[in-house]
Amino acid sequence: MKKTIVEMENVSFHYGERQALSKVNFIINEGDFIGLVGPNGGGKTTLIKLLLGMEKPTTGEIQLFGQPIRKFKEKNKLGYVSQKANSFNSGFPATVEEVVTMGLTSKLGYFRRLTRQDKLHIYEAVEKVGMTEYLSENIGELSGGQQQRIFIARALVSDPKLLILDEPTVGVDAENVEKFFDLLHELNQQNISLLLVTHDIGTMTHHASKVACLNKTLHFHGNPNEFQTLSQDQLSDFYGHPLNLVTHEH
């Protein structure tokens, strides 16, 4: 029996008057690779913000690694690669090493500086994403795909048990998207659970071990094969507009 690391129970969330999530029940088990899909405004990013503690649920309970989220302090167990990660100011004078080091901020806590062991850990994380030779380069000088790898290294450096990625392949070319998914599979095999938000249902059903479809509420949570057998009417119903599912391999 796999350990449950995230459990959302009847979670609802409102932005003022507008309801973003309604009674969502959602579970992530150890080793899962979940593709979270759904229409724009369906609450995918909101769900991530709730898991990361950036927002508090209006009603319902969230448990992270067996603890209520309000008591959860081990932030380093969660790695996060945001949608905005690759839209940073490319003129910012930061080397790859400096960017990856940022990932240790929560693990170190206030006032503590890097030890030799921490530095070793940084090199390991950069090695994991195959970017060792770029350690002393400014991040703005790298390609979109390379930058994305660096942001994953930044998330990995704190030894997360769950890696959350919000639309990580936006602006990355097809060849690098393929390499990117190879990397995610490698990480998943190292027992890092993955929650990947995407619009690309076809790619997701091909790569993820589970698919969750969210439009205010969770309409589907199961294996990708089941998701692919859903009728067009069912999918259109989930999305709130007509939808054709086209599967493909990158």
Partner: peptide, 17 residues
């Protein structure tokens, strides 16, 4: 390290706690 992260990526800084 906090000031540097806050300067580079405010959202990540908030997530980090």
């Amino acid at each position: 390290k906090e000031l540097f992260l806050l300067s580079f990526d405010e959202e990540q800084a908030v997530v980090t706690g």
